[in-house]
Design a protein around this nucleic acid. Structure first.
Lengths: 233, 233
DNA sequence: GTCAACTTTCTTGTATACAAGATCGTTATT
DNA sequence: AATAACGATCTTGTATACAAGAAAGTTGAC
């Protein structure tokens, strides 16, 4: 399920339509949607290719996420309503319960609730939307990290610090704590990926086989045809 | 050209396909693209509706843009390469020439170049991409502002301040100046819109006529059919 | 006259057919 | 034998046909 489609794999429209027992039309629309959300890259007249974010790109995305969350925190510290404060407390309590149970899945869900309350509390609906989108995209990699030893407890402490700063209306501290809260996930990711790379070192080359760059071998005679790749978008 | 499609207007697929002399298929794909970029809202089984960002949303977007640019500046101050520094200077000089000529269109183009160099110089390609996307979306509203009296000169001064901070490697100052540089556009927008509203006050009501909320009159008898609007995505 | 159920019409969503570009294989030429 | 030109095949992009859901109009009951 997790590794159903390999990085670089070409997604053939007819194959997919056969597999899901629909015509090519909805398949095409779905592929365009995935392309918009970045999971797939489409090259005109060539097809759609699976694009998992590279490690570099993931770290970059976590950096941006950290900044967006910091902005949410800064604004929320000034703008949060009593009702939202209450929901923040509820989410924090739920997180605490999950942590005490040691239930990572549960913590993960409640953690998400906590952050979404913050996005809303920023009072900037565009920001909230963008933060949610990126949060969702980084979701699987965030989830991975909750397995790291002691991460749940640390995460919880950071949540309480954020909450404290917001209750006190300390915008800059809320921003800083949140920035760190996310940035540390980028750091942890580095560690996880390093370990993962050690294990998977042997099979890495194979997974690249179907990518358009490495897989489609341009023969010398075809090189005369000068094509500009004309990347989608 | 500018106001070819009115806010809330329904975009009929067959009408559009007739107008552009293509079949419905590419029209549908184009509409989906516009929906992804936020210019159009699609409601399942109902159609696509023109959605210009509201004034509130615009201000929100400028706030986020300010933060993204600030982040670019902070990173660029530390990571910019000599080659990028050179391109920044080139863009700044080009801006200066345009300003001296008083050519707002030209300044607008070169200003864009200046900012794109900064995005690149951040060394975070994801950030650069997101900043470019939002920049592009705010483009028409930015452009409006260059007509404001004295804005060109002020903008130019701010550019030089940004450049100075980056040359000196002062990350926080670069961030602060850039944040202000963008934030002021949100402020100016407020003024422009206030003036615009005064002029257009009479015609405002009419432009809403075709929106699905106000235009589609549900008759009482139809209210029994409980539909969840099921907003797209 | 008003309101509800039915029917008609219109529009989106999906399937299929066709056109055009791209890759791959074959053949001919140097 | 290597390379270029040509043609066959496959795949995407577009057009058209069909199905299903939504809005509007019509008829009938109270």
């Amino acid at each position: 399920m997790a590794a159903e489609f390999a990085e670089g794999e070409r997604l053939d429209e007819v194959t997919l339509s056969a597999r899901f027992a629909v015509s090519r039309t909805p398949v095409r629309e779905a592929l365009h949607g995935l392309a918009a959300s970045g999971l797939v890259e489409t090259i005109p007249r060539r097809g759609a290719f699976v694009r998992y974010p590279s490690f570099i790109k993931l770290v970059e995305m976590f950096d941006v996420m950290a900044e967006l969350e910091a902005m949410c925190g800064r604004l929320a510290a000034r703008r949060i309503t009593p009702e939202e404060l209450e929901r923040l407390e509820e989410a924090a309590v739920a997180c605490e319960r999950a942590m005490e149970k040691g239930d990572a899945d549960d913590y993960y869900r409640e953690n998400e609730r906590f952050h979404h309350v913050l996005y809303q509390a920023s009072g900037n609906s565009y920001l909230a939307g963008e933060a949610s989108k990126l949060h969702k995209r980084l979701q699987p990699f965030r989830r991975l990290q909750l397995r790291v030893r002691g991460r749940l407890q640390q995460s919880m402490r950071e949540h309480r610090q954020v909450q404290d700063a917001i209750v006190k209306g300390d915008a800059e501290r809320a921003a800083d704590v949140l920035r760190g809260h996310i940035a540390i996930q980028g750091e942890n990711l580095r560690d996880l990926m390093a370990n993962f790379a050690k294990q998977q070192a042997g099979t890495a080359a194979r997974s690249q086989s179907a990518s358009p760059e490495s897989g489609t071998r341009f023969r010398d005679k075809d090189m005369r045809k000068i094509r500009n790749p004309e990347r989608a978008e």
